[in-house]
Design a binder for these strands. Structure first.
Length: 739
RNA sequence: GGGCCCGUAGCCUAGCCAGGAUAGGGCGCCGGCCUUCUAAGCCGGAGACCCGGGGUUCGAAUCCCCGCGGGCCCGCCA
């Protein structure tokens, strides 16, 4: 049924017969994609075309011979009966192209039949053969709510998992709870301070948002303290500068002006005067008295000034962040403002917490779990909202992973490139890169350095735990392949994991661990900073969309009764979820997504697809008076379909376009899978919807007088609804039967 | 300093890996279409030297080389 493949196969026979070229040569051209079928740019060139210039050049055919040769190829295809087999009505040629006209009557009969009887899905579903695949995604640090960056991860990961499931793989989705990182310890530090102040997580605030504020305020206050310390130090340096300037002015340069300036500055230092402006005075005076070549004194002054400006800028930003949080969480602000330690005490406490947690100290474990659970509860409710449920949450601190980590560290010592550096354990990937082609194939042009698996103090590192976790994933689930949906910033780490796995003798795991990399989400206007509470959370994004959807509803309905509020809200929620998922999914994973919150209303493709779908169902409802899912309707549609006399049909372009899209659903899924670009499905659903809207607008369906045409169009609408609905489920867009 | 990724109208994006006919869409802008299957729709218009420069080719947005701009990574952090 694949027209393109069918035609390429005929070319293998037809071209040699018409030109004397070896069929092996043609096969090679096809396998190298030098010959390929493509949709023509214009209907007057037929439906599909193949550029045969490469063949014409191979046989050194002069230009005036081209038409002759092409006509012989065309005759060969029609004469052998292959044309009919490939659903071809007519073949033409022009400028070295062979153009094919598709018989859409027969083709549509075939594809509609296969959609209506469900066999098309059996075919799609047989692709994966039940192979076990694990997709690890989201895995956000449990320190603040999911924001649009981690949301992009969730949506890409979950959609990819859904694509795999659709293709008949046996898929599990896992979340890796990174509870052993420093950031979690910082969060727990803040949480402890809050508990000491007898503050409990309030019931009216979503727990992950509350913890996010605790975490951010802790970071902010610590950073502010650090920066103030630095300012003090810089102030000291200003005194030194003035002394140096005075001395140099008097003795080395004998410059009365510089001396005078330094005295003025010194005087001003005792007044209520901004040190930054004093630095500026010093720098400008020095600049004025010097040529292009700067003295070391001037360079020092300039460096101090630029650092001063930097610190001041950062402080201003931090105070702004703090104020923003204070407005929402005044109690947290008050509590943390007075209870956060000095930076060095804080650092010590954080390290202590990490150490105690890794050791499994009961009291520490209890408070860690308590805080992390609050965040995970928040994650789960957000994820559930957008249709994501994990099969498993794997904790980094899981005893089994811990044990495995120690094992791989021990085992690495026995490998060729493993060894110790002092009391630390390392693997020398640099040497492995030089000697082992497999390692080179992982890193390409970038020569790696050694990777540390165990610190001198005996503790483990993120990479070593991740290596252990990878092994755990295979062993625990029996997966044949593991996809890790992780940001591109972790490219290097992922390569290290695969390399060490290979060097430890797990080549199979190294081969089948695949990094599905995606780029960051940037906000137009400001930088997202989880540490300082600057982010747009997924919950907020969905809520903004919900409001937008509600407003759109009101535009067309004007009035909303109190008893209808709940129902409309529910619809708005589903439309909002669709828009959210589509927004984060539609852009290729490797492209940076710059999101402008002010332009939310411009990104409503998700709800637009839902609307298109609802419109299809509406037509079917009107025609059959039943719901799409009902067996009665299917029976009637099947009956209608069987009565269609396809030979009598002439399809219009709009109908052909829909048939084309319906034919390529499986290809879209497979491309999305192979290229790891789940956005391809978004694109597909968008294009199908677009084709359907064009059709809907121009071509009558229920009102069509000709019964044969009407039945065909209803079958087309029904099939489209089936496929579009399926694509929507693959994308995780809620399916609304009416809007 | 080294490496990876990205660069297509005012903005966003498809096409690039596997070179083919007039570079598809969308937003925004201008102008139209609701007594007829859901106007969250459709139609028309303006808007692109495909970042720049070389090269390979009958043919380059696509492949190669040299630049430019942006992002990310190069910790006994996670």
């Amino acid at each position: 049924m694949n027209v393109k493949e069918c035609l390429l196969n005929t070319l293998v026979h037809a071209i040699p017969k018409a030109t004397g070229l070896e069929s092996g040569v043609v096969e090679e051209l096809i396998s190298k994609r030098r010959l390929k079928l493509a949709r023509t740019p214009d209907p007057r060139y037929g439906d599909y075309g193949v550029a045969l210039h490469v063949v014409l050049h191979m046989i050194k055919a002069p230009r005036q011979e081209w038409d002759n040769i092409l006509s012989r190829i065309a005759e060969e295809i029609t004469g052998s009966g292959m044309a009919e087999k490939c659903f071809i009505d007519k073949i033409e040629y022009a400028n070295g192209y062979l153009n094919f006209y598709i018989n859409y009557r027969r083709l549509s009969k075939e594809i509609l039949g296969r959609i209506i009887d469900g066999s098309v899905f059996e075919e799609i579903n047989s692709y994966g053969g039940g192979e076990k695949i694990l997709v690890e995604h989201t895995s956000a640090n449990p320190i603040h709510p999911l924001h649009i960056g981690s949301g992009r991860n969730s949506v890409i990961g979950n959609t990819y998992a859904r694509i795999l499931r659709r293709l008949g793989f046996n898929v599990r989705e896992h979340f890796y709870v990174d509870d052993m990182g420093r950031q979690v310890a910082v969060m727990v530090y803040g949480y402890k301070r809050i508990k000491e102040k007898r503050l409990e997580p309030p019931t009216h605030i979503k727990p992950d948002h509350w913890i996010g504020a605790v975490y951010a305020l802790t970071n902010i206050f610590i950073s502010i303290k650090k920066l103030h310390k630095e300012l003090e130090m810089l102030n000291g340096k200003i005194r030194d500068l003035i002394e140096r300037m005075k001395e140099e002015a008097r003795e080395k340069r004998r410059d009365g002006y510089l001396l005078a300036v330094s005295k003025i500055v010194e005087e001003q230092l005792s007044l209520k005067h901004d040190p930054k402006s004093l630095l500026e005075i010093i720098v400008s005076a020095l600049r004025m008295r010097e040529g292009k070549k700067a003295s070391s004194l001037r360079r020092d002054a300039e460096n101090i000034l630029s650092r001063y400006r930097e610190v001041r800028g950062k402080l201003a930003e931090l105070y702004e962040c703090a104020e923003d949080l204070r407005a929402v969480f005044p109690d947290l602000y008050e509590a943390l403002a007075v209870s956060v330690d000095e930076p060095d005490v804080f650092e010590e406490e954080v390290s202590r917490l990490m150490r105690l947690y890794e050791m499994g100290d009961p009291g520490t474990v209890r408070i860690f779990r308590e805080a992390i659970d609050l965040v995970l509860k928040g994650f789960e409710s957000t994820l559930k909202r957008i249709g994501i449920v994990f099969d498993s949450y794997d904790w980094e601190s899981d005893p089994e992973i811990k044990k495995l980590t120690l094992e791989i560290i021990k085992k690495s010592l026995e490998t060729r490139y493993g060894g110790s550096e002092g009391s630390a354990v390392i693997v020398d990937l640099g040497r492995a890169y030089e000697e082992d082609p497999y390692i080179r194939s992982i890193f390409g042009a970038e020569k790696p350095e050694r990777v540390v698996l165990r610190r001198s103090n005996g503790t483990t590192l993120y990479v070593s735990r991740d290596i252990a976790y990878t092994i755990y994933k295979y062993r625990k689930t029996g997966a044949k392949k593991v996809y890790n949906v992780i940001a591109t910033e972790q490219n290097l780490e992922q390569k290290q994991v695969r390399s060490v796995l290979y060097l430890l003798g797990y080549k199979d795991y190294a081969d089948n661990t695949i990094h599905l990399a995606y780029e960051m989400v940037h906000l137009k206007g400001y930088r997202m900073r989880g540490r300082y509470g600057r982010y747009i959370s997924m919950d907020e994004l969905i809520e903004r969309y919900r409001k937008l959807m509600l407003d759109q509803y009101m535009e067309s309905h004007r009035e909303l009764g109190v008893d209808q509020a709940e129902e409309v809200l529910d619809k708005a929620e589903k439309l909002a979820v669709a828009n959210t998922r589509y927004l984060l999914l539609s852009i290729e994973p490797l492209k940076v997504l710059t999101f402008d919150p002010g332009k939310l209303a411009e990104h409503t493709e998700g709800s637009w697809i839902q609307y298109t779908y609802a419109r299809l169902l509406s037509i079917l409802r009107k025609a059959y008076g039943k719901d799409i899912s009902s067996p009665e309707e299917l029976e009637e549609i099947l009956k209608d379909y069987k009565e269609i006399d396809f030979d009598k049909l002439v399809l219009v372009r709009e109908e052909e376009e829909i048939v084309e899209k319906l034919l390529s659903y499986k290809d879209a899924l497979i491309t999305a899978y192979n290229e790891m670009k789940p956005n391809k499905i978004a694109e597909y659903a968008y294009e199908l919807s677009s084709a359907l809207n064009l059709f809907y607008e121009k071509i009558p369906i229920i009102k069509e007088k000709n019964v044969n045409k009407k039945k065909f169009r209803l079958a087309l609408i029904y099939s489209s609804a089936i496929i579009l609905g399926d694509a929507m489920r693959v994308m995780g867009l809620p399916v609304l039967p009416r809007i």
